[in-house]
């Protein structure tokens, strides 16, 4: 944490940290403090005055069936996104790891979707599954299935999950491939000599050795599904139909900006702060371990 050789200067270090600290205080801590304060107040409908209500906003929220439903939606959504993108990525990484010639080309072709913005991913999938003109919807109709995610909540959920997972495959692929290539080949060859078949070797030897990577990606993907998928949901479903794809982050936005319910939105922000805190702690405990691995 500390150098043996340090410079002595009374003012310079403060000048050096000042820009970072200033931005941090103005745009991070001030708003966070505001959120905490607002979560304890109830503004009148005209925004002219406010009344201290203690934890009333929180009590109201936790009793609100829509908010509870949003928790459930978030849980389903992030589980599906994480499972889908990680399993597809792992499968592709295992295949790419077996390729001797040309694995670089495969890697290039598989990693570039990382650069596609979640919002753009949303627009692309919205286009393919637009109920009246989308190619996906058209072929589903030919197979006898009437696709309409605008009305059907399950289909809407499916679409936002696929769009969010699609974008994340590249990232997971890259880390799984690196993890696989770090496993000493002698271990696998020993199993091969013993006559273990490929998939048996995979599940008994490779997958357990890959667990640090898997766990790391699990945390990253949950964080991604919780926060960064806002744009996917905003572009494809805007939280609908009804509230079937309203995840927690979307609800903060919808209640705060569209519904103008500031007390409730602030209370939701505070609850999310706790969730991020927990996720960050998990992430750091794990990373501490990885350093001493």
């Amino acid at each position: 944490m500390q150098k043996r050789v340090v410079f002595n200067n009374r003012t310079l270090p403060y000048l050096l940290v000042a820009p970072q600290l200033l931005v941090t205080l103005v745009f991070f801590f001030w708003p966070a403090a505001q959120a905490i304060r607002q979560s304890l107040y109830l503004p009148d409908p005209f925004g002219l005055s406010e009344q201290f209500v203690g934890l009333e906003n929180f009590r109201f929220l936790l009793e609100d069936p829509y908010y509870r439903a949003s928790f459930g939606t978030t849980a389903i959504f992030s589980t599906l996104v994480t499972l889908t993108s990680m399993s597809v990525a792992l499968f592709l990484a295992v295949l790419a790891d077996r390729v001797i010639k040309g694995s670089g080309a495969y890697r290039t072709l598989l990693i570039w979707p990382y650069a596609v913005a979640p919002a753009i991913a949303g627009v692309l999938w919205l286009f393919m599954f637009n109920p009246s003109i989308g190619v996906g919807a058209y072929y589903l109709k030919m197979l006898g299935y009437q696709w309409n995610h605008v009305l059907n909540g399950t289909e809407a959920m499916g679409l936002v999950v696929v769009a969010s997972a699609w974008k994340q495959i590249s990232y997971n692929f890259l880390f799984f491939l690196a993890g696989l290539q770090a496993i000493p080949k002698s271990v696998i060859e020993a199993a091969a000599i013993d006559g273990a078949a490929f998939w048996k070797r995979f599940w008994t030897i490779v997958f357990p050795l890959l667990s640090p990577t898997t766990f790391f990606l699990l945390v990253i993907n949950v964080v991604y599904a919780f926060f960064e998928t806002f744009a996917v949901i905003h572009t494809i479903t805007a939280g609908g139909p009804r509230q079937d794809t309203t995840i927690l982050v979307y609800k903060v936005f919808a209640d705060g900006f569209v519904g103008q319910d500031l007390g409730s939105s602030a209370a939701q922000s505070v609850i999310l702060l706790f969730l991020v805190g927990i996720l960050t702690v998990i992430q750091f405990r794990y990373i501490e371990r990885k350093v001493h691995y």
Partner: peptide
């Protein structure tokens, strides 16, 4: 450098990890 408040600065910067914009949008 070694200066008073160094660890405080470090932790203030560290804590921003826990405050993504999605969480504090309205304020």
């Amino acid at each position: 450098f070694r200066f008073p408040g160094r660890m405080l600065c470090f932790w203030l910067i560290f804590l921003t990890l826990m405050l993504p914009v999605e969480v504090r949008i309205v304020p």
